[in-house]
Design a protein around this nucleic acid. Sequence first.
DNA 1: CGGATGATTCGGTGCTCACCGAAATGTTAT
DNA 2: ATAACATTTCGGTGAGCACCGAATCATCCG
Lengths: 255, 255
Amino acid sequence: MYMNRWDADQEKLAETPDLAALAALLADRTRAAICMALLDGGTWTAGELAEYASVAPSTTTEHLNLLVAGGLLAEERQGRRRYVRLAGPDTAETLENLAGLAPYRHVPIRSLAEANQRRALHHARTCYDHIAGALGCALVEVMTERGLLAREYGLVLTAAGAHWLTALGVPDTGPSLAHRAHVRTCLDWTVRRPHLSGALGATLYRHALERRWIVKSPTTRILSVTETGRTAFRDRLGLPDEALSPSLAFPAPRG
Amino acid sequence: MYMNRWDADQEKLAETPDLAALAALLADRTRAAICMALLDGGTWTAGELAEYASVAPSTTTEHLNLLVAGGLLAEERQGRRRYVRLAGPDTAETLENLAGLAPYRHVPIRSLAEANQRRALHHARTCYDHIAGALGCALVEVMTERGLLAREYGLVLTAAGAHWLTALGVPDTGPSLAHRAHVRTCLDWTVRRPHLSGALGATLYRHALERRWIVKSPTTRILSVTETGRTAFRDRLGLPDEALSPSLAFPAPRG
DNA sequence: CGGATGATTCGGTGCTCACCGAAATGTTAT
DNA sequence: ATAACATTTCGGTGAGCACCGAATCATCCG
C-alpha cells in the first residue's frame, strides 16, 4: 500500500499563514492609528501613543501587547518606559501598500493649524525611511523623464542614474541593504501616484537630510524643503517649483 | 489676518486612508479564506466559495457583499449566479505580502490525499498570475546565479536576461503591463524566500503555460511540471532536479 | 407552467473584544 | 524615605458582528 511517509497514528499538522490574525491586528481604529503614527519611522513611548490615539493608558498597553506579539512592532524597555517602533522595513512597506489600497474616510478639520499641517503632509512627509507626498512622487517622475530611472522590465536605475548618484556623492551602498529590493515604488495615499521607496528611496532620503535639502519636523512626519534644497532639487533634477513648496490650494480631489 | 483658504462657516473635511476598515475585511477567518482561495487568479461562484469555506450560503453572501464593497473583489453576475474574483494585481500583491508577514497557524491534516496536495502546493502553485512555491523561488535563485537577474540597486533584468528572454521567444511586452513594477519579488509563504512576481513573473508564467512546461490543475492552484518542462527548465536554466518535482519529504521546518 | 437551483433577505443568538477606572507595580526624582 | 510618574493588571460593561435557518426572489430547465 502506498503510504509514503504517512503515519496514521501520529498527529499531523500543516502550517498555513494566518492572514486573519494579522489583519485583525490592524482592524481596530486605535491600533491602525498607532501603526500609521509609527510609519514616521520613529520610536514612541506608550504614553505618547495613548495621547495621540486619545485612549486610556491601560487600553494602549493592551494594544501594544497585541501588536508586539503579532510581530508588527518592536519594543525596547528603558526604566519605567516602553519604547515601540515598527518591526522593520517589510512591515512599513506592507502598511504603506495597505494604506494605498484602503478606502478613504472623511475626518473633520477643526482648526486652521490642522489644515495647514495637512497641507504640509500632502506636500512632503517621511514614510518610514524615505520621502512620500507630492515631493516623493515628483522625484519618481522627474528622474524617469531625465533617464535616471527607466521602466524596462521594472523600474531600474539606469547607467546615467548610477552616474548621477555618484556625482551626488552618494557612496555606493552595495550590499549593505542587499536584502531589500533596491528600487521600489509604493502607492502614495495622498496623491495616489507611486513614490520612491526601497533602498534607493532610503538612500536618497538620508542624503537629502545630510545635505539639509530637507528638514524633518521633530514632532510630526512633515518634511520641509530648505532654501538650499530648493536650488539643489531644481539644479540637479529640474524639479518644477510646484513640487518644492506646499501648494496654496488643497490637493485636487482624486478622480 | 492670515486665513488663507479657510472658511470658518464651511464644513471642512479631509480624507484619510481607512486602514482599519480595509483590514477588518480580512480580519475574519472566512473572508480571509475566501481571499486566499481567489489568489489562484480564478473566478469562483458564491456557492463554490460557500462550500470551500464551509459556511452557509447566506453567510457567504454577506461576506461577498463586504469584500466587493470594500474594493477587494470584483463581481460579475450572470443569470442566477454571482461570479467573483480578485479586483486586480495590486490586490493580489498586497494579499501575498500580507500572507508572507502573517504568523503561522497549525491546521490538522486529515488524510493522505490532503498531505499529498499540500506537498504539491509547496512545490509549485499559482499565485494570481505567476509561479509560487519552491519552483518559483528556485527560478529567482537560478536566474540570479546565471546573471539573468542582478541585484544592483534593485532586482533587474540584465542585458543577458533580456537576450535570454527573446531567445525563448517571449515577445517584448513593452508597455503592455507598464503600470506594474516589472521585476518584483514577494515573500513566499511556504518557503519564506522570495519568488518572482510583477510583470516579468506573469510573463514567464504565461510562457511556461503556453509551451506546456507546466500545467495547472483545473480545480486547485497546483502546478505540475511536465516532462518537456523538466528538460526545458534544466536545459535553459539549469534548474536542479530537486526543484522540478515535489520532494518526498515534507519541507523542512522553518528556522 | 411547475419544479429545481443559486442566491438573497431578515430576525435572532452567542461570542468576541475595545474600552474604562481603580488599584497595583516598578522606576526615577526629591 | 516619600512623592511623582509611566506603565500594567484586572474586573466589568457595552457594542459589534459572524453565524444560522427559514422564507423569499430570481433564473434556468423539463
